[in-house]
Amino acid sequence: MNFFLVIVIVLLIIMIFYYNSLVGKKNEVDNVLGGVDAILKKRYNLIPSLVQTVMEYAKHEKEVLEKITEYRSRAIRTSNKEQEVALNSEISSMLGGIMVSVENYPELKANINFIHLQKTLNELEAQISASRRAYNQAVTDYNNAIEMLPSNMIANFLNYERKNVFKIESSQKENPNIKNLFNQ
C-alpha cells in the first residue's frame, strides 16, 4: 500500500513539474510578444514624424511614404497577429528603401531632425530584429514542449496548440546598417 502511495506521489510531483514548465513556456511566449509589441509601438510613434520630415524634402517619395502611413494604420488597427507581422515586414522593407533614396536628397541628409530620426529608427530596427529572434526561440521551446513526451499529454489536456514563429527575411537577419545601405 505504502509502495503505491509513493509511486502516486512521485507521479504527481512529476506531473506538477511538467505542468508548471509548460505554463512557464506559454507565459514566456506571451511575455516576449509583449516586448515585440512595445518596440513595434515605438516605431509606430516614430513613423509620422519621419514621414513628415522626409516628405518636406523628398517629394518624389510621396507614394512610398503614403503607403508606409497606410500600412502603419492598418497594422495598428488589426487584431490579427500574423497580419500585423506581415505589415510590419513590409514597413521595414519600405523604410529601408527610403533610407537608400535619402542619398538623392542632400538637404534631407543634412537635416538634424532627420539624422536624429534615422538613428532612432536604426536602433528600433535592431531591437525589432532582436525581439523577433527572442519570440521565435520562446515559441520553439513552447512547441517542443507541447510535442514531446510526457508534456504533450498535459498540453493536450489543456488544449495548448502550436504557435507559429515569425518568418525572418534573410535581409532582416542582420541589423540594418545604413553605411551598407548607402554602399549598395
Binding site: 516576449v32 525581439s131 529572434r133
Partner: peptide, 8 residues
Amino acid sequence: DDQITARY
C-alpha cells in the same frame, strides 16, 4: 536579465 536585450 532580458531575452530581447540579450539578442539586441
